[in-house]
Design a protein around this nucleic acid. Structure first.
Lengths: 234, 234
DNA sequence: CGGGTAAAGTCTACAGTGTAGATCGGGCGT
DNA sequence: ACGCCCGATCTACACTGTAGACTTTACCCG
């Protein structure tokens, strides 16, 4: 198709043939999603970017949906728990901030992270998706929680984290310079009679420190959990 | 197309011509999504169900995406705050449980609720989406919070609520009879070396009372917020 | 009653999608 | 040398969203 496609020689003259592994496919896919959003991830377009036939991709992901799952897994794998850290609370706190950072770096992937597991019964998920769960569980159990309590704690923690991320991303504004103007502009459309509070809060909405808000929420949550733990262990 | 399509007479002999309003379109769309999931909502299929040309739909929603927004809005409209209730805490608690019930009734819509706002700058959202925000804000302000604090409270509250819903739906299992068996089956696939905690917790995962978990989380959250309020008002 | 106007509904057509199935090519073991 | 198999490709099909032209319907005014 191209010009010098016969380049199958050993040293392909510095041209492009990273020989198409699963990771190569997934990371190019991630690139594409990051750059243009989920809908832009098309078999044909991805094939184009990789310089191969769209059909080749099916060797490495058995459908487009599976490919999306792969992308989500790839992103999640960037997270990891340092298993030997001192305090479970600082652990969870660090992890939360890492996750937040990751979400801000790949905002287009967040819908996948949040949405895809809904269609997959828990046991059938890609392992990469379950690893954080397992890690946190053992972290908590090591910290002294009863296993079943650890599950509750995990739910409370992750629920809050997901919720926060979604909230923060919803208010995300691209250009921090013009943000306030844009916001006002957007809100100006609202009928003043029906939305007085919202309009009045426009400036407050404009300067929103997600990191701090996350941290505050975490302290509340974590101290509460710690109290619960103290009560158990006596 | 059909057989007796000439039926345009005043009384259409009990046949079918609910004359295609926006609400008719949206609620049929919701039906379809509830029954078969988001991907099943296709212009052509929806047209078929409504007995009209797919193109007609564009009179009532200017694109498929807009149609999805409409569906989300329609679902959200089923929620409402009784404005005259006694305590803001019981208000928020009731609202949370209503929302949870709604989410369980329309699980396929939840991804829309959670995801669509991410692509729409806050000011440009369909009004139905913003109304809950406004209502909660005025509820909180009426309860004595400073407006900017009300915003924080709203974020904490909704963040938690969204997170909980997502968590609960992820563990949702269709048939409560076989659920445990299925779950074990699913989890059995996990390598025992890598996921010991998770496998051990299978039974605990199986009996998960979402409502109670929600309620517990709410009490923590709400009492925390109340303390904050008391501090402000002195 | 006739005619004009705007809306509501339809038809056709196009570019693009995911993917099943057959086909090709080239490196390996024997 | 042969056969084999696996990765990559090609072709084809059913289906998608939607632009633009067209037809039908409803109604209002003279």
């Amino acid at each position: 198709m191209g010009s010098a496609n016969r380049a199958k020689s050993r040293r392909s003259s510095g041209s492009q043939k990273p020989p198409l592994s699963r990771d190569a496919v997934l990371s190019k896919a991630l690139e594409l999603v990051d750059a243009e959003g989920i809908d832009a991830l098309t078999m044909r377009r991805l094939g184009q970017r990789l310089g191969c036939d769209p059909m080749s991709l099916y060797r490495y992901a058995e459908s487009r949906a599976a490919l999306l799952d792969g992308v989500a897994e790839l992103v999640l794998d960037e997270l990891s728990i340092q298993p030997g850290d001192p305090d479970w609370k600082v652990q969870l706190r660090l992890l939360a901030h890492d996750f937040r950072k990751l979400a801000l770096q790949h905002p287009h992937v967040v819908p996948l992270l949040v949405t895809r597991p809904l269609s997959t019964p828990l046991g059938m998920r890609p392992l990469g998706t379950l690893r954080p769960l397992e890690q946190i569980l053992s972290l908590l159990i090591a910290a002294g929680f009863e296993p079943s309590d650890a599950l509750h704690v995990y739910r409370a923690y992750y629920g809050f984290l997901y919720g926060h991320i979604l909230n923060e991303l919803q208010e995300f504004i691209v250009d921090p310079e013009e943000s306030e103007a844009l916001l006002r502009l957007g809100l100006h459309r609202l009928p003043a009679k029906d939305f007085p509070r919202l309009r009045a809060l426009a400036p407050a909405l404009a300067d929103y420190d997600g990191s701090e808000e996350l941290d505050q929420g975490l302290t509340i949550r974590l101290t509460g959990l710690e109290a619960q733990l103290a009560r158990r262990t006596g």
